[in-house]
Every structure is written in structure tokens, then in C-alpha cells.
Nucleic acid binder design. Structure first.
Lengths: 247, 247
DNA sequence: GGCCATCACGAACGTTGTTCGTGACGGACG
DNA sequence: CGTCCGTCACGAACAACGTTCGTGATGGCC
């Protein structure tokens, strides 16, 4: 029962080099696994498997799963470069910064979920917070409400990144379902969010008159478009500008 | 091995009445468990234990854990009453509706987490969506952007409910730590969010000048106050009003 | 050449969500 | 009144999870 495979094990230490196995390697493997398998599929065991080791080895470099995901979140933010003076005035730069953050986070499945449970305090999160508040101050936002404004923008980034991730997931599902024609059609309609439209459509018009009347505008296609994103960001920035001064 | 306790089991069917065990009872038990033990502590086994039964019995009434939590979320929304004509104009009514939704969800720990993963489609969620969009239309918001505006408000409600839940959790932690004086002080400082302030405080002032300059305004106390909530809602509603028409 | 600190990892523990098969209850039927 | 059968409840089990413990090997230092 002790020796199951026989004479020499498969790879006890046949390969002496392997990988040095550092904290950075563990975090990078976790983020890579988020990309290829999805946020929910990232487990300590699978991260260890990707590094060709056992789950216990990870705990030398990482306290627990929460800390690992928090570090992966910050690593995802590392690719965001704050706009410079060549990118226009403070508002154009702020829109660019927010857009880049959403693109970076949304490109790594639901990694933005990390920012909901805990306030991110990684180096990249702090770097972007600094950049955001600097731009807000340049826009004339009062010092006393600047942190509040950054908070509002942060919530916008997080929720928009999750929306983007969901859209990309649906798109990939559509692309993957290239087999049968009927399956493709079903996937297409799913991607269009028509299951939600179906729910709205089956609602009695007398109890839900407004939903019924606005249903043409409630398609998920319109909700996911580029117009929607820019409109929403415009709403928030203009709202912030209207409340620049302290109440 | 078959009979472990002896002659007659503890309560195989000693009490023939017990509880009828319906779908409503399961959902109510789940929400009750959220209240007294927290969202993360709600497991199928504990819900079953609260109903004096086994975990397998729940699956007769509920497909899986996700559906159960979604139903609990909708049950939490059931206590929200949409404001009527006596509550003022459309804006006052909208602020009241949003405030009630936040209070209802935030009062049940992190139940609002359900609304992040999936779009809520329960009867109460639909009822409040109808009420929200009706008020928005009354405010002159264009039909084409009304669903978008409702979406923005929904994100605001969800994130604010999670913030409120976290604050209530901290307050309860402070109240529960009435034993040792030192423990109380530690809990107090935790509730004040000074661990976050400490992180900001230890940042080098030359790399993070804006964070350093704004640190007095970044206390969690100011972030959790009533002023902050009303300011934020004002930002969003005024932003929506500025973008009433379609782009 | 020998020793010791460090690191990697196999195995295990306690939980989780979910499923299967058995068993008992209660109404319908002969 | 006896019997049968459908329905529901639940004990037990399975796979997978996060995390911890103890052992074995590695590699640098004396």
C-alpha cells in the first residue's frame, strides 16, 4: 500500500531544475489559471498542479486563498498605465484611466470580485488610487470629497469590469459552440441575453406597464454596447462635477 | 452498526407534526441564518439543521445553493415598500425607494452579493425595477436610457448595501467585545477602519503625494457617515438628470 | 566530510455541495 | 378492512475543497 507505482516514482525529483517556485510564480500561475479556466475554477490544488507541485507547497509563499486572489487582482492591475499629459486634459485622462482599468480587470474573468469583499491595498491599486485622486483634484474636485469621488469611480470600475467579463465569457461560449447549427443558434440567443428578455416579455403588461413599455430598450445587446459604457461614465463624471464642493 | 443509539431512535418520527417543510420554509430559514450567522456561514447543512432535517431534504424544494440564495435575496427585498404620492415628488420618492432598498438588503449581512453574480429576476426585484423606472420616467428620463439609469441605480444599491452590512458587522463586533478594556479598544480601532488609515499613513509622501495630502479626509469614519451616502446618491441622480436624453 | 536549517510535499482532517437508494407514511382501491 | 403504491424524507456516501502536520530530501556552511 506504501508503494503504489513500483520501483521508481514518476517524478520524485527526476528533474532537479523544474521551477524555483517563488511567491511571484504562485501569483502568476493563479492569474493565468483565472484566464484559462475562470475565476471560480481557481483552487489551491489546481494552482499547485499548474506549478507541478502539491497544494501544501503554496502555503510557504501565500497565507491563504484570499491573499493569493488579492495578489492576483493587483497583478491584473499592473498592466494599467496612467495616462500622461499627451492624452489631453484631466477629464480625457480620467476617462482613459477608468477605461484601461475596466479593460484590464474585465480581461481576467471575474477577478474584480476580489475588490468587493475587501478594499484593495496592493501596490498597483494604491498607484491607481493616487493617479485617480490627482486627476480629480486637477478637475477642481474639493479635497474633502475627493476620496468619496474616488470611491464612486472605484465601484464603477469594479461593476463594469464584472459586466465586461460576463460579456466576454458569453462571446467565448458562442465562439466555442461552432458545432451544430442549432446549438450555435441557442448559444447566440443566450449571448444576446434573450433569456432575460424572455422573462421581461412574459410579464403581465397590466402589473408591469413600464417594464413592458421599455422592453425594446432593455435588450442585453443595448446594455452591453460601447454607447452604454460611455454614457454611464459620463453620468458619473458629470455627477461628480456637480458635487465638487462639500455639502 | 445499523442501530447506534439503541431501542428507539431519538426522533425518527416521534413527533408527527414537526414542520410541513415547504419551499417557503426553506427560504425563510436560509434568510434567518444569514441574519444570525452571516452570509458566508449559510450552508445547506446548517439550513437543514435549522429545519431539524437532513441536507438532502432541501433539494426537493430547491435546485441548488445558488437558487436558494437567490430566493433569500428576493425575500429580503419583500420588505421594501415603494413610496406613494404622499412622499413628495418623483425625486424624493426615488431617494426614499433607494434608501429603503439599501436598508433592507444591508440588514441581512452580505445577501446583496447575490445580485453581483446574477441579475435578480425574482418577483420583488421586478416589482422594484418597475417602480424605479416609473419614477425615472416621471423625472423626464428618456425611454431609451431608462433601463441604463435603472442599472446604474441598481449597482449603487448593491454596493451601498454591502457597505452598510460591513458597517453593521463592525458595530456588532464592537458591541460584542465588551469584556476586556484592551480588547474593546482594539475592536474600536478596527471599527474605525484605522488599519486602512495605517496603510495610507505608512505610504511614502513623495510617491503618493495626493493620498498623503488627502489622508485626513480618507478616514473610514467619514466614508461611512450619513453625509457620504446622501452625497453619493445626489451625485448619481444629478448625473442621471444631466444625461436624460439619449446620446 | 559531516551537520543543520530550510524547503517541498505526501497524507490527512474537517467541511462543503450534491446524489443515490432505502424506508416509512398516507390515501386509493379491491 | 386489508393491501398496494406513489410520494416524500433522510441516512449515507462521493468528490472536491482549504488548510495543517510531519517527514524526507536539498544544499550551503563549518
Amino acid at each position: 500500500m506504501t508503494d503504489s507505482t513500483g520501483p521508481v516514482r514518476d517524478n520524485p525529483r527526476t528533474r532537479p531544475a523544474k521551477a524555483p517556485l517563488s511567491r511571484q510564480a504562485v501569483i502568476a500561475a493563479a492569474l493565468g489559471l483565472v484566464d484559462e479556466a475562470g475565476y471560480a475554477a481557481v483552487t489551491m490544488r489546481r494552482v499547485a498542479q499548474a506549478l507541478d507541485t502539491g497544494p501544501a507547497s503554496l502555503y510557504v509563499y501565500v497565507a491563504d486563498r484570499d491573499e493569493l486572489m488579492a495578489e492576483a487582482y493587483d497583478l491584473a492591475l499592473a498592466e494599467v498605465e496612467p495616462p500622461g499629459p499627451v492624452d489631453g486634459d484631466w477629464r480625457a485622462r480620467l476617462e482613459l484611466l477608468v477605461g484601461r482599468a475596466i479593460a484590464a480587470l474585465g480581461g481576467h474573468d471575474d477577478i474584480a470580485l476580489v475588490a468587493i469583499t475587501r478594499v484593495p491595498t496592493g501596490p498597483n491599486a494604491l498607484r491607481l488610487l493616487e493617479a485617480t485622486m490627482t486627476l480629480l483634484r486637477a478637475g477642481g474636485v474639493d479635497d474633502s470629497v475627493c476620496p468619496w469621488a474616488a470611491d464612486v469611480l472605484d465601484q464603477y470600475v469594479t461593476s463594469s469590469a464584472l459586466e465586461l467579463a460576463a460579456r466576454l465569457r458569453d462571446q467565448r461560449a458562442v465562439a466555442a459552440a461552432g458545432g451544430a447549427a442549432e446549438a450555435t443558434e441557442e448559444a447566440m440567443s443566450r449571448a444576446a441575453g434573450s433569456e432575460l428578455d424572455a422573462i421581461y416579455g412574459e410579464l403581465p403588461a397590466d402589473v408591469y406597464p413600464t417594464i413592458h413599455a421599455l422592453r425594446p430598450a432593455m435588450t442585453t445587446a443595448g446594455r452591453n454596447g460601447h454607447l452604454y459604457a460611455t454614457w454611464k461614465l459620463g453620468v458619473i463624471i458629470d455627477g461628480l462635477l456637480a458635487h465638487r464642493r462639500h455639502p
